[in-house]
Amino acid sequence: MFPRSDNFIAAMHRAVLMMPNQMCIREVTVNLENGLHLAPSSQIVQLAQKFGCALSIRKGERTVDGTSMLELLTLAAEHGAVLQLEARGDRAEEAIEAISQLFERNFEVEEPA
């Protein structure tokens, strides 16, 4: 370790605080019986838009843009699939919390008839 002055540490601290983009990662599991179909995917996209975040969602080897319905639907995430969410933006933490809650509440929607 190089010796670092207090000024240097304070400067780094300020730089971190001023970083425009937060990044948050969280792992969630799809508990929907029918998998991540269109209605829940739409809820995710709308939350990402609401918080103005970039959102990537990874399933296994594949990562897609979670702010795009077309991308999200190509994951075909079935019941039991584990997804890693990664949000970037000033409100990334709020976004990831809200989106994780969707999964925890099992999207609170009636299954489409």
Binding site: L36, H37, E71, L73, T74, A76, A77
Partner: peptide, 17 residues
């Protein structure tokens, strides 16, 4: 057959991209 529905959505979305 929820799996078929999900795979059809996947298929359609993949081509529409």
């Amino acid at each position: 057959r929820p799996g078929d529905h999900l795979r059809a959505l996947e298929n359609i979305s993949r081509h529409l991209r």
